[in-house]
Amino acid sequence: MLGGDTARFEPLVVKYSPRVFATARRYARRESEVEDIVQEVWSKAFQKLGTFRGTAPFEHWLMRLAVRTCYDFLRHHQRSRERVFSELSVPEQEWLERVMADPSTGSADAAAARQLVHRLLDMLSPSARLVMVLLELEEKSVKEIAALTGWSVPLVKVRAFRARAEMRRCLARIAAEKYL
């Protein structure tokens, strides 16, 4: 496989592609972008296979590569981060209005909430988005995030704190544009 035999690489691609696609879909919305990310991940994996030492499972090594590729993608595609409240769909607006009036009703209409959270994630900076996805959506520990991203544990903690504050600001801005 290290000699460039793609046929031997095929079982790995077949086995781990669903996992890589699931990761990529956390960071990109358009399916064409998701496919570009996954393609990039496999190209890098094929080229860098020689650096895989085998001391940890292949999946861990691959996911580290996938997360870093997704982060690179976010950094290079920051164009559509700014969204305005008028772009919110009716269910999203209704969900927000309802939860602002009574936060205990948040569990109703989860689909609208998911749309809104994706919109908020789109507004975050690349590092904030990465840390929010890994920490809050994938529920990884700070240590795991540090291993995946290559950041130090204190840096992950600082970025997580800032990401949460950034998300709060984005949400407050959306609400202010609508109600003030």
Binding site: V99, G106, A172
Partner: peptide, 14 residues
Amino acid sequence: WERIIDELLAAARS
């Protein structure tokens, strides 16, 4: 806002 963000993230996790 913290409570609302928690609700949003819980929905996304599901």
